[in-house]
Amino acid sequence: MDVNTLLDYLPLFAQAAVLTIGIAAMGVACSLVIGLLGAIYLYFRTPVLRQFFAVYIEVSRNTPLVVQLFFLYYALPKLGLVLSSAVCAITGLAFLGGGYMAEAWRSGLEAVPPLQFRSALSLGFKPIAALRHVALPQAMARAAPALTANTVFLIKETSVVSVVALPDLVFVAKDLIGASYNTSEALTLLVLFYLLILLPVALAAAALERKLRHGEFGT
């Protein structure tokens, strides 16, 4: 392995990492929101929307991201909807992640005793406020491990976005290997950069989980 090659490649990987992080952040944020909405409709058994989300969850979790991305990037334009590569990648991640996050949020919400919710109502909270101030904070503490696992999973899933022509970390690594056969240098940097992105996320999530759980469960 050549140190100079590593150093030469560093800026290219750093640039690609910024893209990977951006796509991942947007995708994770959207999937958290979609998942939360789905979980709320499932939790309140809202007619129509509940069935819609139940179907959505199955579709999103039972199709590979690569296939979803192919569909968004190559099939939708034929149907008259052209999305940019970045929008395709974020949409695909949000679609996939939304299903997983919905199930994580739902497990958390259902683990909060229903009487907690009624107790909040009895203080004069409207249902949506009771959800926000009483049920959700407790649900989040319970769902934190699953939400974290999904977040890490989604960040790792960004490694396939090069199929829609996004110059992410994998794209750059493949490109450099193809151009100069510096396979070990390129792959070493690829591993390092994913660790560099994912380890802080895992540590931050663990800290957040401790904070969320402290009140109810102690340390």
Partner: peptide, 22 residues
């Protein structure tokens, strides 16, 4: 009901304190 319930307090058998708040 959210207005009525502010005027009618209810205490439950199982306390139902909110465990995430002090």
């Amino acid at each position: 009901w959210e207005l009525i319930r502010q005027r009618v307090g209810m205490v439950f058998q199982e306390y139902e304190l909110f465990p995430h708040l002090d």
